[in-house]
């Protein structure tokens, strides 16, 4: 008999895609998708239940549907509802869901999607984070803090229900065709502000790989914590340039950067991303490849290229740059040919 899977955060594109993949999986009998808003995308054959995780109906739902596997997505931007902050929805929702799971004897495995943001970003961190690196500075705000708190509650749950197989997937920021999130909106700015004097290393994750990993974790009990990111790394400047956009270095200071962002394009940079965009973060995915058995199909540069072709290039179009290069080369070449006997100018760096 196949698994009965409960997917939370199913209205997000990633949640919907994962739900569709699970419906097609032979090991899954039924998929119950939950979110507070109706999903924009098709959920395949999944049954959608519109509910808030903070509602006691969740405990009943687990029993009535006979759920044995829970896939809980920590959502970067849960749909707004009056009188509740994002942190409250994420963290209190997780607490309530875990409380319901603890009572539900049928639950056999639980998968949490977290973020590599739990490692924070600081100049005192090692260049590459492994799963057991302890963050020197815990994230204090935003989505990363929600993820860190959720992981904490999950550790408590694991102690109380040792029979449940627990998988935590720490995902890098999503980037690829169709992605819309804080990072994607920031990179869509016509001129991208960066922190003056810093060029952080970044890693991104393509949504295809994220959905594949979540689905794989759900149908195979691969206990443990795994980093999930595209291979390789790019610096922020490099990333912005590859998207064909000019970058604008702004003097340091979260307030200043945030202000500049708001002024330039009306887009706010989340506070927890400011440290990331100053010091950068790269994670080790050896455990993912060796123990989890999944190699991301999209490397970080490939995911960036995919996102680039989706949004189209901006003011610094690569083809345009190449045309200028050819024209300059031809002009200088002609000038040099005219003064062939003169001293050759030296090129170089």
């Amino acid at each position: 008999m196949g698994r009965v899977v409960l997917v939370t955060g199913a209205a997000t594109p990633l949640g919907a895609e994962t739900a569709r993949r699970l419906v097609d999986d032979a090991a899954v009998a039924r998929v119950v998708a939950v979110d507070v808003v109706p999903p924009a995308a098709d959920l395949g054959g999944a049954r959608f239940v519109r509910a808030d995780l903070r509602n006691p109906v969740m405990a009943e739902l687990l029993g009535v549907e006979g759920v044995d596997t829970v896939l809980h997505l920590t959502v970067a931007e849960p749909p707004a509802r009056a009188g509740s902050s994002r942190g409250e929805r994420n963290v209190i929702g997780t607490m309530q869901l875990l409380a319901a799971c603890q009572r539900a004897a049928g639950v056999r495995s639980l998968v949490l999607s977290s973020s590599t943001g739990v490692y924070g970003a600081s100049p005192r961190d090692p260049a590459v984070f492994t799963e057991d690196t302890v963050a020197r500075q815990l994230p204090r705000t935003g989505f990363a803090k929600d993820c860190a708190e959720n992981e904490g509650y999950l550790r408590g749950f694991a102690r109380r229900r040792p029979d449940v197989a627990i998988t935590v997937l720490r995902c890098a920021d999503l980037l690829g065709a169709g992605v819309d999130g804080p990072l994607a909106r920031y990179l869509r700015l016509p001129v991208v502000p960066t922190v003056l004097g810093f060029d952080p290393r970044l890693q991104v994750l393509h949504p295809d790989d994220a959905a594949a990993a979540l689905a794989r974790a759900t149908v195979n009990d691969l206990e443990g914590t795994y980093n999930l990111a595209g291979d390789g790394a790019v610096t922020l400047t490099q990333l912005v340039r590859r998207l064909g956009r000019p970058s604008l270095p702004v003097p340091r200071g979260v307030g200043l950067l945030g202000q500049a962002m708001r002024r330039v394009a009306g887009a706010a940079l989340p506070a927890d991303e400011a440290a990331l965009l100053t010091y950068g973060r790269v994670v080790d995915t050896t455990a993912l490849k060796e123990r989890f058995g999944l190699a991301p199909r999209w490397s970080t540069p490939a995911a960036v290229a995919d996102f680039g072709s989706f949004i189209g290039s901006g003011l610094l179009d690569p083809e345009c740059v190449q045309r200028v290069e050819r024209a300059l080369g031809a002009t200088v070449g002609a000038a040099c040919a005219a003064t062939a006997t003169g001293p050759r100018p030296t090129g170089g760096g």
Binding site: V128, R201, G232, V234, T235, R241, V321, G329, C336, G348
Partner: peptide, 29 residues
């Protein structure tokens, strides 16, 4: 194109690669 002398062409190509992000870094940076 082969129009410009080598050092200049190389310098221009280098500038173009920097401007379009067409270079590699390792995970350490």
């Amino acid at each position: 194109g082969g129009a410009a002398p080598d050092p200049i062409a190389r310098a221009l190509a280098f500038l173009r690669r920097r401007l379009t992000g067409d270079y590699e870094i390792d995970e350490i940076g």
